[in-house]
């Protein structure tokens, strides 16, 4: 395996990890299988497109074409994607969590409502912006580095580094902050959390906003490689949910390992001459199904040596 393939695999893995961790945290703490995660992805892509389109002339007028200007452009893009993702997460909280969280069959109802939100928002995006792909400003610039004879594109390197930074921040928040402690408690034992005075109703809002922001980050990073379109969220969403399942729903390390495995599998299958890109989906899903048949708890079942 050459280095180019390795970087491509890590690039895929970082996008998948951002999506899968969002799905995984949300499912295990709030109990909501968020089918609108793909819509969050698309909405934050469009949010970033609108904001950067609005800000671009202003930034160019005030800073010209300096390094500072491109840095401000990059932070505007990432910030607007994060914020629109978080806002969309809050909307999901208001529509799909708050009205039904104490009703029977909450998990199934939540699934149906978020699926409805997904369809409605993808259709609204189609209605508002049309089916045309939109290109976001390239915040990492065009070009490539030469490392040991292989070329690494800036956007790939930027995606990997950006994803690692955001994931480390998320994990640090979960590990060291008080709210993060509450979220982890809820992920591990909902009843014990309730007995510790941790309210699911209160904690669900930051969790939904956080997972929305993670989807927004994935959208911002993927927009550097491909275009934003109303349906651009569907493939990342499907991969996110299946990788979260592969990692064992509720396990953050499991989701990261699952994303890396799937990223490398995709890159590898795509590079084998007699298989090629058309077998990528087939191979990844066969792999996930095989793992889940052998280890129903996914990868986290292997990592976990604690008992309930």
């Amino acid at each position: 395996m050459d280095l180019g393939l390795f970087v491509y695999a890590l690039n895929l893995a970082s996008i998948y990890a951002l999506m899968a961790i969002g799905v995984s945290i949300l499912w295990s703490s709030v109990g909501l299988l968020n089918m609108a995660h793909g819509a969050t992805f698309a909405v934050s892509g469009y949010g970033a497109w609108l904001v950067t389109g609005f800000m671009k002339p202003i930034i160019i007028a005030s800073f010209g074409k300096t390094a500072l200007a491109s840095f401000i452009m990059a932070s505007t893009l990432v910030g607007s994607a994060l914020i629109s993702g978080a806002i969309f997460g809050a909307i999901i909280y208001l529509l799909a969590f708050l009205p039904i969280h104490d009703k029977p069959n909450y998990a199934v109802r939540g699934l149906i409502i978020t699926l409805a939100i997904n369809i409605a928002s993808v259709q609204s995006l189609l209605y508002l912006f049309g089916p045309r792909n939109r290109g976001l400003p390239k915040i990492f610039g065009f070009g490539r580095w030469e490392v040991w004879g292989t070329k690494i594109r800036y956007d790939q390197a930027g995606t990997i580094i950006g994803a690692i930074i955001i994931l480390s921040l998320t994990l640090a928040w979960l590990r060291y902050s008080r709210r993060g402690l509450e979220v982890r408690a809820m992920m591990q034992n909902a009843e014990g959390a309730a007995y510790s005075g941790i309210s699911r109703k209160v904690t669900a809002l930051p969790v939904l906003m956080l997972t929305g922001a993670l989807a927004g980050m994935a959208a911002a990073l993927l927009s550097q490689t491909i275009f934003v379109s109303p349906t651009s969220g569907s493939v990342p969403h499907i991969m996110g949910v299946t990788i979260a399942l592969l990692g064992g729903l509720g396990s953050v390390p499991g989701a990261v390992i699952g994303a890396i495995l799937i990223g490398f599998l995709e890159a590898f299958i795509g590079s084998v001459p007699f298989l090629g890109q058309r077998y990528v989906m087939f191979a990844t899903f066969s792999f996930i199904i095989a793992v889940l048949v052998i280890r129903p708890r996914g990868i986290s079942g292997l990592l976990d040596d604690t008992r309930e």
Binding site: R184, A193, A194, Y195, G197
Partner: peptide
């Protein structure tokens, strides 16, 4: 339950309801 617990009812439930990963 969380509101009741916060109002001053402390409970050590059956089966302990622990968080295995903390």
């Amino acid at each position: 339950t969380p509101r009741l617990v916060r109002s001053g009812i402390a409970i050590a439930p059956q089966g302990d309801a622990i968080f295995p990963g903390l």
